[in-house]
Design a protein around this nucleic acid. Structure first.
Length: 771
DNA sequence: AGGCTGCATGGACTT
DNA sequence: AGTCCATGCAGCCTA
């Protein structure tokens, strides 16, 4: 399909070929996505005038459900004129054509900026935050509510595609003036709305406003833009470190982002979380905005009680897993530590008294470690304090200073309440407010990131790149913690899916235990991962009965779904394998690459050979253990009728994805995928007898209407009892025969007959060493 | 054995 | 290329 031109043909923008945007929800640079209200899936909407596809009417189809979606969102509204006939045109075309802008204006007057988005809901914002996009290189925003001017220099222009990276926040750009100075607004705002989860917040507009104000009234105020990256903010804000808070400039929160029942009112802006740039000049260019203390105006007002003390927010930090862990060491941002904490010259540092939200004083050791010719500052002994605050990874600790005493204060903000709940309650900084009832706002600028994390933080399963930066710091554990309460459902779902991957020992029948209306199969033997299990819920519960459905695993990636860690999603994500290097042949590193056809059955690459070796090892081990097992059974049968415990220590399973796994105790190891048409352990008539390392389980899933394919334990045992050579020949692994012969008695066999525990690791290590 | 300490490592990010 | 920082881990300490 040839790229099309903008439907009005005036701006000349090339529109994406259909195939480009229908590939899925994966975002490309400059693109953004909307969520389909029907299926919740995202569809890609490319940056307007860059590549933006409109069909004849300006509607598009959800790539998932086919539902037609309106090309409207708060961002695109900056560019689009929603036509009466349902079509869409960009503002430049619209203005040229003389389209009556009142359509949107009127909507705007009703609810601020009000544009129907893809789901038909009304996204609104204050009219004062009227979207305005000027030309690409220069934007002048004028006449704020109070008459102050905002000037966005060209180098920081909102629409500077080269600099603006709004996706850093996953937010919706908004500018701040009430008049559009640029009738030919055809700027491109790089914008990404969070996608990937069927999240109630996914459709919420996120607003990110960052404004620098000079203290001098009347002067043009440099505004780094409503959407610039942090570095830009840093640069720009450096000019305003000594400015004053300008509460009047706080943007109003779009209704749509507010919790239900939260009515917009003039005080609403007070609840916008503000990232304050550092108040002290010595770090103004060093402290990343992520460490800027964020505080809502309402919180400030709460703090501004009747106390005479002045609270100076210094910085904040999202707790990492390490910070919140039991080690009790809180890594301090270097710049923050050097800026706000006493200077230390010795690694031992010095004790630091910090008062917590309850007024309790804690004594920490503020010290540093030499690190790469630099320093790594830590607060030691924070565990009791963190536990006292019930903080977890993902929560935020805030450091402030009480003036004039200079006492350090430590507040916190729970991740679970840092967004909508806090907006609702407006008590985010209530902890901090306990410090004082009166605060003189430090001179500073306003840099606010309105609900920057609303929604984007929720993308536990698919953090948008915009959150990459922040998520990096907090890791997957933090992702878990950043999940809103509503997303507990997601966790539960994952848990269910994990349950779904358990399968009882084939040799034992599970007993059913009911826990909180959920019926669980209780296994005397450890369940096997990678096989289907039965997860049921009582009739009184939420679900009646859930049998195994391959589709349920669609949410998994091909790898994750089969790895044991899937049962612990966070663990699966946090594994970074820092010690793994190229050539590592551990089971993680040799995950079969996706894409059928990359590996032939005769492929002798490291991955294939390792898999084959392992399979061979498995078979040998299986054979040996089976013979031992049978001997034990015979022995036990003479004494008792109880089933042998060792039965399922080793098992082979074929998942519904045709994935061949073997399980050692609790440990499940993926071997590879069975060829689509073959059953590795099945009948000879259908077996091609080779491992296909590249079949994507989900693709196979779709092709396979029968659902799961399982091999009975007995057949596995039969296979295991076959002479290895026979088996290998049957299954096209003849190459391994010669290999085995070559290596028999030297390396493999002695180890194969060794201890069961750690056998895989031993082999991994050996293979790794070999490689 | 388990906890603690100090350092090393490496990915992510910045310059 | 340099820097930051989250985290792993070896070695030491302690119960």
């Amino acid at each position: 399909m040839e790229p099309e031109v903008c439907m009005n043909g005036l701006c000349g923008a090339l529109l994406a070929a259909e195939g480009d945007y229908k590939k899925g929800w994966a975002l490309r640079s400059g693109g953004f996505a909307n969520l389909c209200d029907k299926c919740g899936s995202a569809y890609e909407q490319l940056a307007f005038c860059e590549v933006f596809h409109l069909d004849d009417t300006g509607w598009r189809e959800c790539t998932s459900c086919g539902r037609r979606l309106h090309c409207g969102c708060i961002a695109s509204s900056a560019f689009l004129e929603l036509l009466d006939n349902g079509g869409v045109s960009c503002i430049s075309c619209s203005s040229t054509l003389g389209h009556n802008p009142k359509t949107r204006e009127e909507k705007t007057k009703e609810t601020g900026i009000s544009v129907e988005n893809s789901v038909g809901e009304t996204r609104s914002s204050s009219i004062d935050n009227h979207v305005n996009v000027g030309n690409l290189n220069k934007i002048m925003l004028t006449k704020l509510n109070d008459g102050e001017e905002l000037l966005i220099p060209s180098e920081n222009a909102v629409a500077s595609t080269s600099q603006m990276k709004l996706e850093e926040y996953g937010t919706t750009p908004m500018s701040l003036n009430g008049t559009s100075e640029s009738p030919h607004a055809a700027g491109i705002i790089k914008y990404r709305e969070s996608t990937g989860l069927k999240d109630v917040y996914g459709s919420l507009v996120q607003t990110n406003l960052t404004i620098g104000l000079s203290a001098a009234p009347g002067k043009p105020v440099l505004c780094p833009s409503t959407a610039v990256e942090e570095t830009e903010l840093n640069k720009t804000f450096s000019s305003f470190q000594q400015g004053t808070w300008s509460r009047h400039l706080l943007p109003k929160v779009p209704k749509s982002i507010l919790p239900q029942g939260f009515n917009a009112n003039p005080g609403m802006s007070s609840q916008i979380r503000v990232a304050r740039p550092p108040v002290e000049g010595r770090v103004k260019n060093q402290l990343l905005p992520r460490y800027w203390p964020r505080i809502t105006e309402q919180e400030l007002q709460q703090i501004s009680g009747d106390s005479n003390a002045t609270i100076v927010p210094l910085f904040e930090k999202v707790l990492s897993a390490s910070d919140a862990g039991r080690i009790g060491r809180l890594v301090l941002p270097k710049a923050c530590a050097e800026a706000y904490f006493p200077p230390i010259s010795q690694p031992e540092g010095l004790p630091l008294r910090i008062q917590d939200v309850k007024g309790k004083e804690w004594l920490f050791q503020f010290r540093f470690w030499p690190n790469n010719n630099s320093r790594m500052y830590v607060l030691e002994g924070v565990t009791p304090c963190i536990q006292s605050m019930q903080l977890q990874a993902g929560d935020t600790v805030t450091f402030s200073r009480m003036e004039p005493e200079g006492k350090l204060l430590m507040g916190f903000r729970k991740a679970s309440t840092s967004t909508s709940l806090q907006l609702m309650k407006g008590s985010t900084y209530s902890h901090l407010s306990e410090f004082s009832r009166n605060v003189n706002l430090p001179n500073g600028d306003v840099g606010w990131h309105t609900n920057e994390q609303l929604g984007s933080k929720l993308m536990a399963g698919s953090f948008p790149p915009s959150e990459k930066k922040r998520s990096r710091n907090i890791g997957s554990k933090s992702k878990r913690l950043l999940i809103e309460s509503q997303d507990a459902l997601e966790i539960k779902h994952t848990w269910e899916e994990s349950q779904d991957m358990l399968f009882p020992s084939p040799l034992q029948k599970p007993s059913v235990v009911t826990i909180e209306d959920n019926e669980f199969e209780e296994y005397e033997e450890p369940p096997v991962f990678g096989k289907g299990s039965i997860f049921t819920v009582c009739s009184s519960g939420r679900k009646s009965s859930v049998s195994h459905k391959p589709e349920q695993n669609q949410g998994y990636s091909g790898i994750d779904a089969q790895t044991p860690s899937t049962a612990e999603p966070s663990a699966a994500i946090t594994t970074k394998h820092p010690r793994h290097r190229p050539g590592c042949s551990c089971i993680v590193c040799i995950q079969p690459p996706s894409g059928k056809g990359k590996h032939n059955p005769t492929c002798t690459c490291n991955v294939c050979m390792t898999v084959k070796r392992r399979f061979k090892t498995l078979m040998l081990r299986k054979k040996k253990r089976q013979s031992e097992h049978e001997a034990k059974i015979a022995e036990k049968n003479q004494l008792t009728c109880g089933p042998p415990k060792e039965d399922v220590e080793v098992s082979i399973s074929v998942t519904p994805h045709n994935q061949l796994c073997y399980t050692l105790g609790h440990k499940e190891v993926e071997v590879g995928f069975l060829d689509n048409e073959s059953s590795l352990l099945g009948s000879e008539s259908t077996s091609k007898g080779h491992l296909d390392l590249n079949i994507h389980p989900h693709r196979e899933e779709r092709d396979r209407a029968n659902g799961e394919t399982r091999v009975s334990m007995m057949s596995l045992l039969q296979v295991a009892n076959l002479p290895l050579e026979t088996y290998l020949k049957q299954n096209g692994l003849t190459s391994l025969i010669s290999e085995q012969q070559a290596s028999s008695g030297s390396q493999t066999l002695p180890q194969e007959t060794g201890e069961t525990g750690g056998g895989d690791e031993e082999e991994d290590d050996r293979l790794g060493d070999e490689s």
